[in-house]
Every structure is written in structure tokens, then in C-alpha cells.
Amino acid sequence: MATITIANSVTQPLVIEDRDEKQLIRVLPLQKAILYHKNNNGIRHTEITLEEGANLTYLLWQNEGVLDVRFDISLKQDSSLTFYTMTSSNKSITMNPSIYLKGEGASVQVMNVFLALDDAKVSCDSFILHEKGNTQSVHESYIIALDEASVKVNNNSKIIKGASKSNANQVAKGLIIGEKSQITADPNLFIEEHDVIAHHGAAIGSLNKDEMFYLMSRGLSEEQASRIIIMGFLQPLLDHISDEETKKEIKEDFEHKLK
């Protein structure tokens, strides 16, 4: 078992090395870190603990190979997590993140971006549990399914009784590009407390014909027009990544795969 402990805040992203064992990450009280993991080919289970007031940004980018990973993440009082995953592999992707908001004032922002190619099968089952009051969660899924790829996202957020003044948000947006591609989104809210705010929604469709006509009427081929619309869909998501080099690398990978 490999353990990473953040005892002092670091401003530069720390790169997670690939290894074939369980991984434990702990961010000590009030410390701050950015962790970046490119192509996880061995870690099947990661446990993350954010102590009181800790702040973590975790970015997993998978652009090749099979991914099969489980996350168990606990957030203590006033800690905050930004959890981004971006995948563009044409192999099977399975992700099961479970996030427990255990302390008052804890907050999590999850953004999953799936670019599914060829006959890739993508499956993401996530669970966010609000155990205490004043906890916040935002879960966004953005999916592009090309060729014969199929993507299933099953997002679950639960606010237990007593976790008042909590806020749970879910958004799922999907673009079906390939004639044989499929997207299934299942956004679920389980709310046991009255004094909360919760939203969920899913919007899945194909490329807008009028937008395609507009771009093509300016001379862009069908492929160029669809690529520009897809990159337009992805750009605001990439803008969340603060590290310019990583952002550029991911953008170029997406552009390359859409050619």
C-alpha cells in the first residue's frame, strides 16, 4: 500500500506515480495540494482523507488503456475537494467514486468528462453522501460518444436527515455523435431532510443541425464543423484546469482524437 501525506501546502501539481497497489492519500488540517495522475494503469483503489480545513484538487486524465478504479473519499469539517476526471481512451473505463461529506461546511465539486471512441464501454457509478449540515456538492458529467461507444453514468447524491442547509447539484450533458453510439444518464437524488436545496438534470442529444449549417455555410467541412462544436462543448470544461501545460496537453489530445 502506498501512502501520500500532505503535511505542508504545495502550490505546484504533484504527479502521482503509477503502481500496482492500493493508494492512501491524506491531506492534513488546513493544508492545500494539487494531485495529477495521468494514465492510471494499476491503482485499483484509492482512499482519500481531507482533514479539517484541507483543500485538494485531484485530476485524473486517462487517454489510453483500460481504467478500472474505485475511490473512497472522506471530507472533514470545512475541507474542500475539486475532483476532475477526463478520459479519452478507446478502451473500457470503469469508475466508482464514493464521496462522504462527514464534517459541517465540507464541499466537493466533481466534474467527469468522457470522450468515448471506437467501441469503448464507459461506466461511472458515483455516490455523494451529505452526512452533516451546510455541506455542498456539485456533480457535473459531460459525455461525448463517437463511433460505436457506449457510456453509462449513474450519479447518486444523498442528503441524510439532519444535514440541513446542504446543497446538492447534478448536471449531465451528452453529445451523441456516432450513429451507433449510446449515452445513458441516470441522475438520482435521495433527500431525507427538508431544509436543503437540490437540483438534478440531464440533457443528451446530437449535434444541432442549425449550428452545423451555420459553420458549413462558412466553408467548414462536416468533420471540421462537428469538431469545432465538440471542442466548443469541451473548452469551458478545460478552462477549469489551472495548470496551462496540462490544459494544453489535454486539449491537443482531444483535438487529435476528434480528427
Binding site: D210, E211, Y214, M216, R218, G219, A225, L234, Q235, P236
Partner: peptide, 29 residues
Amino acid sequence: PVDERSRKGLFLAMQYPSEISGVTNADFI
């Protein structure tokens, strides 16, 4: 096809031009 008409020299200034989110005007042109 539409794109070839454009490249051959036809242009339509539209009454209701579409919005293309995430793509800057400069990049598009």
C-alpha cells in the same frame, strides 16, 4: 454540399445566425 457552395464563393448573411458556444469568433473566422 453546403461547405462547397461557400468555398466556391457563395455567402449567406443570416437573419438569425446561430450561437456557437465555446468557440471564439477569431478562431471561427
